[in-house]
Amino acid sequence: MKFFQLLKILLFGPKVTENEKTIREFPVDDQFEAVGQELKETIKRLYGGRSLRIRAVDAGSTNAEEIEFTALNNAYYDIDRFGLSFVASPRHCDMLFVSGPVTRNLENALKTTYEAAPSPCIVVALGDGAIDGGIWKDSYAVVGGVDKVIPVHIRIPGNPPRPIEILRGVLGALNQKNF
């Protein structure tokens, strides 16, 4: 009987979940937690309790930056607890993450995304490519840094920047006085 086989596996089969102890004793990145806590307080102060919404725009990157800031969402970093969230439309965002040198094909898309976002919108140039074109600088296919298309408020260098550096950059952007 399939049903009893299933019950047998469920009740007496091997355990497939992690041991509780190993999870409890997982090392915590204290530096990251500290930045996160500070960010949490800053966002609470600036946005009155709601979270900071981020829209990521890939303007022609190698996806290295994407992997890093996607890591922010995973179970280890879990930035949602600090009050940051990624949204699916520029209509909902407070902050734009732009990665990669702006290719000519995506120049218009980046511009319309910025125009569609409600102001004030903080623009973060993520990675060396976004800052000045990186290794594609002066190529015929790219426009150059993000600041050639839309105004940039903060630049996070690195190729790609580590998640903690991204968070530090966001914190720095929020602590700026003028946008």
Partner: peptide, 10 residues
């Protein structure tokens, strides 16, 4: 601020 329909970049 009036703006045209969001067109996903294209």
């Amino acid at each position: 601020r009036e703006y045209k329909t969001w067109d996903c970049g294209q």
